[in-house]
């Protein structure tokens, strides 16, 4: 079995890269031919944001095995930071203009936003991760609420922002410079980095801690270090998602980042399968596209989600994919009848 494994490893990234490029080409063609309207590209943007949020939350919840109910707090930090940075840069006329300047302004802003979210993730994680299970869920919820209340009452985070800010108002007038091509590639890069992370020795350490933190500690893993690392990593990508969101929506109200929003991302992770990044991608995509398709039933959306969530937890607690990953290579080889079905990617069924 060793030989096909090696072959598969060499082929896998190439197949996935081709898949990603093909998907991008389809996207470009659809936008150019006008099939994808501004409305639909908005939905695609929301899907990308959800995918980044769900996959990043999955690192803390699925791979580390700790439910975090304050993920939107980090998203808020990223969103507000990056929005204020692009505002400040626009005010002092740095990198303004369509095309490349806007792109770099956006990129710099969201990366700094992500970095600040990561710093807060670390600051929250160091004390919070001494706890686990229910208590960790509650303390992350508490931190999320505190972040929300503080941002709401900061003067430079409301109104027109910075020196013309007003506390307690929505932050308005953010340049809407996320565009779907850029966001697509950012999503790809984010998911790729997260995939590398969970496949590295760090990711394996997280899974060991998830299965049994005491015995992982006994075998020499620095449990606290890995927990905080995972939390920081997860917060970084939540910050990036927040940055994209801010520059897509154009104005930020703190009500976009409530406890209930955090719960929505938890729902995506549970649906997709805790411990499956591709599961989170699929669930994030479906659950954020579905409400648009079912606009007429908008008021029943959360009702249906909550029932579905209970049903999933009772009858299929592993979610859609469990801890397995969807693999393009496997699908292709099965499709072309090479019969390598027994090679499952990351298939540690519990």
């Amino acid at each position: 079995m060793i030989i096909p494994n090696i072959q598969r490893k060499a082929k896998n990234p190439l197949v996935n890269l081709i898949g990603i490029i093909v998907a991008f080409a389809v996207l470009v063609i659809l936008v150019r031919t006008g099939v994808v309207s501004t409305y639909i590209s908005g939905i695609l943007m929301t899907i990308c944001i959800s995918i980044i949020m769900a996959t990043s939350l999955n690192i803390a919840t699925g791979f580390l095995g700790q439910i975090a109910l304050g993920h939107c707090g980090f998203m808020a930090i990223g969103a507000y930071t990056s929005a204020l940075i692009t505002k400040a840069m626009a005010n002092s006329n740095i990198l303004v203009g369509a095309g490349a300047p806007n792109f770099f302004r956006f990129l710099i802003a969201i990366i700094i936003g992500g970095a600040l979210a990561a710093i807060f993730g670390m600051l929250v994680g160091i004390p919070a991760l001494r706890l686990k299970g229910d208590y960790l869920a509650i303390i992350t919820l508490g931190f999320g609420e505190i972040i929300r209340v503080v941002i709401q009452n900061l003067k430079f985070c409301g109104g027109n922002g910075l020196s013309q800010g007003a506390a307690g108002q929505a932050l308005v007038g953010i340049s809407r410079i996320s565009n779907i091509y850029v966001v697509y590639w950012i999503t790809v890069v984010c998911v790729f980095l997260m995939y590398c992370f969970v496949r590295s020795r760090y990711g394996r350490a997280l899974m060991a801690i998830r299965e049994d933190d005491v015995s992982s500690g006994a075998t020499g893993l620095n449990v606290t270090y890995y927990k905080v690392l995972a939390f920081t990593f997860s917060a970084f990508f939540a910050g990036i998602a927040g940055g994209i969101f801010a520059h897509y929506i154009g104005s930020l109200s703190i009500n976009n980042f409530t406890f209930m929003k955090s719960v929505e991302y938890v729902i995506m992770v549970v649906f997709g399968g805790m411990g499956s990044l591709t599961g989170s991608i699929v669930a994030g995509g479906i659950l954020s596209a579905l409400p648009e398709a079912l606009r007429r039933f908008a008021e029943y959306r959360m009702l249906v989600y909550s029932i579905a969530l209970i049903v999933v937890v009772i009858f299929k607690p592993t979610g859609l994919l469990g801890t397995r990953e969807f693999s393009l290579t496997n699908v292709l080889s099965r499709f072309f009848g090479k019969g390598k079905a027994e090679i499952k990617d990351g298939g540690q069924d519990e």
């Binding site: 439910i67 109910l69 299970g133 229910d134 869920a137 209930m260 719960v263 938890v266 729902i267 549970v270 959360m302 009702l303 989600y305 909550s306 029932i307 969530l309 209970i310 937890v313 009772i314």
Partner: peptide
Amino acid sequence: ALITAVAMSLF
């Protein structure tokens, strides 16, 4: 169980 409780609250 925790997720069910959150879901119930949402419901």
